[in-house]
Amino acid sequence: MTERITKSMAKNIYYGGGTFALLIFIALTFDTVHQIPERSNEVNMTENVVAGKKLWENYNCVGCHTIIGEGAYYAPELMNVFNRRGASDEVTFKAYMQGWMAAQPLAVPDRRKMPQFNLSNEEVDSLSDFLIWTSKVNANDWPPTIEG
């Protein structure tokens, strides 16, 4: 008892499967778009965060660092630097960032050197606010380790 697939059966499989895949795609797209506002931390975006993001882009920080897994892997992931270096305390983190940025480039042998950008205190605070904001984005437990 061998059955053969007819042209009309193949057409039905093709159209039925295509329609099913399209419906799944639409449902997943709707679900993703529905989750964006609660996962993006958009409500906490201030002018200082936007200014920090502009600094991030203008100085091409992503050319060496990654953030939320995107960018170069030359220097550390910075999505969780607020938790790593600031112990989740904004005042501590901003003080750390002021000192860190002022101390660049470090004269440590066999260490990659970060350039001195000569940022003002306000610019470093804006960059700090951007990194603090980024640390609160829901990125599905990325990065996988605290050290990035």
Rank of each mutant, 00 (worst) to 15 (best):
E3P: 03
K7L: 13
S8C: 09
A10E: 13
A10C: 04
A10D: 01
A10T: 06
G16E: 10
G18Y: 06
T19I: 14
L22T: 14
L22I: 14
I24Y: 08
I26T: 02
L28K: 07
T29A: 10
F30Y: 05
T32S: 00
H34Y: 15
Q35I: 07
I36E: 05
I36H: 03
P37V: 11
P37M: 05
E38P: 05
R39H: 07
R39Y: 09
E47G: 13
E47F: 01
V49L: 10
V49S: 06
V50R: 09
K53I: 05
K53R: 15
K54N: 15
W56R: 12
W56C: 15
N60G: 13
C61M: 04
V62I: 05
G63L: 08
H65C: 11
T66N: 10
I67A: 10
I68T: 11
I68V: 12
G69Q: 00
G69Y: 01
G69F: 03
E70H: 11
G71R: 03
A75G: 09
M79F: 00
F82T: 01
G86L: 06
A87T: 06
V91W: 01
T92K: 14
Q98G: 02
G99E: 00
W100H: 09
A103C: 06
P105A: 11
P105R: 02
P109S: 09
P109L: 05
F117E: 07
F117A: 10
N118A: 14
N118S: 13
S120L: 07
E122F: 01
E122Q: 12
V124P: 02
V124K: 00
D125W: 01
S126Q: 10
S126Y: 07
L127V: 11
L131T: 03
W133L: 13
T134E: 12
S135P: 07
S135W: 00
V137L: 10
N138I: 04
N138A: 14
N138P: 02
A139P: 00
N140S: 15
D141L: 09
